[in-house]
Design a protein around this nucleic acid. Structure first.
Ligand code: SF4
Ligand code: SF4
Lengths: 163, 163
DNA sequence: ATAACGTGGACCTACGGTGTCCATAATAAA
DNA sequence: TTTATTATGGACACCGTAGGTCCACGTTAT
């Protein structure tokens, strides 16, 4: 239950791009140097980010990457879902166990009615887990690349103030 | 970024134990049959739960497992942390990159002062991630084995009512 | 004593995260 | 046009770990 290093790298790369938005684009060399990750691997990550429309890439001389939209419209959730995939936090595996029939199918007829009425017939365990997932997602949706940048800037100016 | 199957099994096993609290203990055979998981593997999981004080085990004839404390004092978070380990959601890897120095160490002197004053000198990315983790944990702390049992019972009685 | 039952270690397998290398395509500059 | 630069995508290697099996051992009731 941990985020992968790729997610780590992706976030840092995007922060770098956001920080250097003045100049149109940033090459893989600069990113690699800044993050301390090999160019080969980092390019894989950037490619993924591009395929999902988080960044734009221009090939050729003086090419590089730039954010595909404003930094305050790129949420942590976006990045995490691109890198980690969109699999659910909890995926029930044994729906044909005796246990399952006890918990989620007492009175099959009733379940069917429920399904028709409410449209969803989740089991109780899944309900808890999906709730957890929703909470997590909501939180991550509220944090953007820009918000990190802002806070870093605040720290910085605060520092300058003191001098 | 998914919970492992072991966590799934552990939750179901505990629900089974909670459901059958009347009789003192439940053997691995019954659990295995109920969940549809091999006895060998399930016993590993139960063993882990025992080492962390979630269940008690009695060896010998007519032995088995029972909850070590009331079902409403066993939270989802407890179970998940036992099975998944207590690793943080996000573990920074490249603290010696140029990027890091930019984000988390502008004015090292100031950082040091911060450290002394507040006791924590997290970087901004970690701060976001730890916030997410706290939210998730809080949610999972509020759900217990008992709460699932209760809801299942409610469904059941509701069903009986209708007849 | 013996049969039932949990424990823990050794071991296996498959898959995915991490990472490298290279051939190719696209583009700007010369 | 040629060349140097840069991103792209596929192939591949490595390795840790989730998932699972097996077995020898200790414990307990009958
Ligand atoms: S009770 Fe829920 S979690 Fe358990 S097997 Fe059925 S659907 Fe899956
Ligand atoms: S800025 Fe934060 S997340 Fe990034 S390397 Fe430094 S400590 Fe780690």
């Amino acid at each position: 239950m941990q985020f992968s290093k790729s997610t780590d790298y992706a976030l840092h790369a995007l922060i770098h791009l956001g920080h250097a938005e003045r100049c149109s684009n940033v090459g893989i060399k600069e990113l690699s140097g800044s993050l301390g990750v090999s160019e080969s691997y980092l390019s894989k990550i950037m490619s993924k980010l591009r395929q999902d429309g988080i960044v734009r890439a221009v090939p050729g001389v003086n090419g590089g990457y730039e954010l595909a939209r404003a930094a305050d419209r790129i949420t942590f959730l976006d990045v995490i879902q691109v890198m980690e995939g969109r699999q659910k936090l909890f995926e029930c595996s044994n729906t044909n166990s005796r246990q399952h029939r006890l918990l989620a199918e007492e009175g099959t007829a009733r379940r069917e009615r429920d399904k028709e009425r409410t449209g969803k017939n989740e089991c109780l365990v899944e309900k808890v887990m999906e709730g957890a997932e929703q909470h997590l997602h909501q939180y991550l949706r509220e944090r953007t690349i820009q918000s990190v940048l802002d806070e870093a800037f605040k720290r910085c100016s605060h520092e300058a103030n003191k001098k």
